[in-house]
Amino acid sequence: MTRLFKGLIGLAVIGFLVAYFGSPLLTVRALVAAAEAGDEAGLERMVDFPAFRDSLKDELTARLMAEAQADPRVRDSGLGGLGMMLAPMLVGGAVDALVTAPTVAAMVRTADVPDPTEGATAPAPAENDSPEIRRSYGYRDLNTFAVRLTNVERPNQTLKLLLTRQGLFDWRLTGIDLPEG
């Protein structure tokens, strides 16, 4: 009897560990399926939009500041400093308008961040126009899971979507790491 009890406890522990560490993969599959189907309600359940917007704002502001610092015309200009002070506000407003469920779906489908100057939503690609996207996964830490999306036509530009654990088994998309360049 004790041997059976120990076996059941062992199976329960193994089952818990599989569910605990495998749960982000289920969320990723649901996220990709919702993006491909254009399921806005499903995406809204899986994305923490305020956290995702903040992450994108930080990424775009850092990139803009680095580009401004690298350009001697901007760096040495008095108006360049003013532009660098105003840039976070401009980026913030654009990101707030841009990041919606259809835009997140487009990011997942194409592994690309839509250009804010092209409008707030990106149309769903036709079935034969869909780029081939490679997905790879991995934990950054116990509560952060990264999904790396790479368009095979641009193998050096990988978009990373970051999911954060919400409770034991629930995950939400909360962050982004933009590709280099």
Results as ranks from 00 to 15, higher is better:
91 V>A: 01
136 S>T: 14
138 G>K: 09
144 T>N: 11
127 E>L: 13
92 G>L: 01
154 R>K: 12
137 Y>T: 09
100 T>C: 04
94 A>M: 15
89 M>D: 13
112 D>M: 12
136 S>N: 11
113 V>E: 01
139 Y>D: 03
126 A>R: 14
141 D>F: 05
134 R>H: 10
143 N>Y: 01
132 E>K: 12
126 A>H: 03
107 M>A: 04
108 V>N: 03
147 V>S: 02
95 V>N: 04
135 R>W: 08
122 A>N: 02
112 D>L: 06
138 G>Y: 05
89 M>R: 15
140 R>Q: 13
115 D>H: 09
148 R>S: 13
139 Y>C: 06
143 N>M: 06
136 S>D: 13
150 T>F: 00
158 T>Y: 01
95 V>E: 01
92 G>Q: 09
144 T>E: 12
121 T>P: 07
136 S>I: 07
155 P>E: 08
125 P>Y: 04
133 I>F: 02
135 R>L: 12
141 D>C: 10
130 S>N: 08
152 V>Y: 00
115 D>R: 02
146 A>P: 03
97 A>C: 05
128 N>M: 11
151 N>R: 11
144 T>L: 13
140 R>C: 00
152 V>I: 14
99 V>Y: 01
107 M>D: 02
140 R>V: 12
124 A>P: 03
111 A>F: 00
122 A>L: 10
119 G>F: 08
136 S>G: 07
133 I>Q: 02
136 S>L: 06
145 F>T: 00
121 T>N: 10
103 T>D: 03
150 T>Y: 01
